[in-house]
């Protein structure tokens, strides 16, 4: 089972490197935002696999924290691409 975890970790690390390349190279802003979101998910997977490998529960809160921050960042970027501003000046409700 441990070999399986290590193989999964290696595959996710390769995917992480590819996403980093897309983040730097990415032709449009949308590519970069998608790459950033996927990097957040890969980080969560790496932390989960590491906590399985070294058999600890201390990293589980970090997983939740990373996913919350990644979600808020992606939402802010999406709104910025769509409207050109992050916080609305006039209330649209």
């Amino acid at each position: 089972m441990m070999t399986f975890y290590w193989v999964a970790l290696a595959i996710i690390s390769i995917a992480f490197a590819g996403l980093l390349f897309r983040l730097v190279k990415g032709p449009t802003v949308a590519d970069r935002v998608v790459a950033l979101d996927a990097i957040g998910i890969s980080l969560v997977s790496i932390v989960a696999l590491l906590s399985l490998i070294i058999e600890t529960e201390f990293f589980l809160e970090i997983i939740l924290l990373l996913s919350i921050l990644s979600f808020i960042g992606t939402a802010a970027f999406a709104k910025f691409i769509e409207r050109g501003e992050i916080f609305d000046r006039d209330d649209n409700r």
Binding site: I72, K79, F87, R89, D90, D91, N92, R93
Partner: peptide, 12 residues
């Protein structure tokens, strides 16, 4: 609080 600001605007 930032998430609230994103969704509902800074004045609300």
């Amino acid at each position: 609080i930032v998430l609230l600001m994103l969704a509902f605007g800074i004045r609300t």
